[in-house]
Amino acid sequence: MVSSSHVAMHRIFQKDPALLTRALRQVTTMQYFWRHPLAEQVREEGREEGIEQERAAKILEVLDLRGIPVPASVRERVRACSDLDLLNTWFKRAVRAEHAEDLFREDDDPGHSR
């Protein structure tokens, strides 16, 4: 069964064949764009940013669930971080931290007591 929108499009393209040509060029251009390496790079960057944002949210959630107060400065620093390796380190520290600021301590800091 042909839908009414297909029938309408068919009539429009019969009246103006050049319109069909322009529409097909646009579709081809759009398909090319989504396959273009730059488009893939943009999508990959978006995926990475999403992973970073999710990891930052999980860090703060772990601290919240553990009842550890999280100052605004810590929340801002965690949310602003775009280094996934560092976020992973902070996530591991969030599981054992006594204070939110413990996320940022250096492992080899002799002045830090556990």
Rank of each mutant, 00 (worst) to 15 (best):
D16L: 01
A94T: 07
Q53C: 06
I68S: 09
A8W: 08
V42H: 01
R75M: 15
R22E: 14
A94M: 09
L60D: 15
E101F: 01
R96M: 08
R25M: 08
P110C: 05
L38N: 03
D109P: 05
E101D: 12
G67H: 07
L103E: 13
K58M: 15
G111V: 08
L87S: 15
V27D: 08
G67S: 10
V78G: 12
V95H: 00
A94L: 08
S73P: 00
S73R: 12
Q14A: 12
L20H: 08
G111I: 00
Q53P: 02
E106W: 04
E106V: 04
M9S: 05
E48Y: 05
A18V: 00
P71Y: 01
K15D: 05
D85E: 12
N88H: 09
E45G: 04
R47T: 06
T28D: 12
G46T: 06
R47H: 08
A100C: 05
L84E: 15
R47C: 03
D102A: 11
L65R: 13
I59Q: 12
S3N: 10
L86G: 06
V78D: 13
E48C: 04
H10S: 09
Q31V: 14
L65N: 14
K58H: 09
L60W: 08
L20F: 02
R55T: 15
E40I: 07
A56K: 14
D16S: 05
D107G: 04
L65A: 09
L19P: 00
D107Q: 08
S82D: 12
T21S: 01
S73H: 03
L60I: 10
V42Y: 00
Q53R: 15
P110V: 05
F13S: 04
I68E: 11
V7A: 03
A8N: 05
I59D: 13
M30V: 09
D85G: 06
R105H: 13
R93T: 06
Q31G: 09
L24H: 05
F13G: 10
R35G: 07
L24P: 00
R93G: 06
E52K: 11
Q26N: 12
T89P: 00
V70E: 11
R77M: 10
S4L: 08
F33T: 02
D85V: 03
G50T: 01
A8Y: 03
T21Y: 00
H99E: 15
N88Q: 11
V2H: 02
D109E: 11
R43P: 00
D108T: 11
L60A: 15
I68T: 12
T28R: 03
R105M: 15
D107W: 04
H36T: 00
P37F: 04
M30N: 11
P69I: 10
H6P: 00
E49C: 02
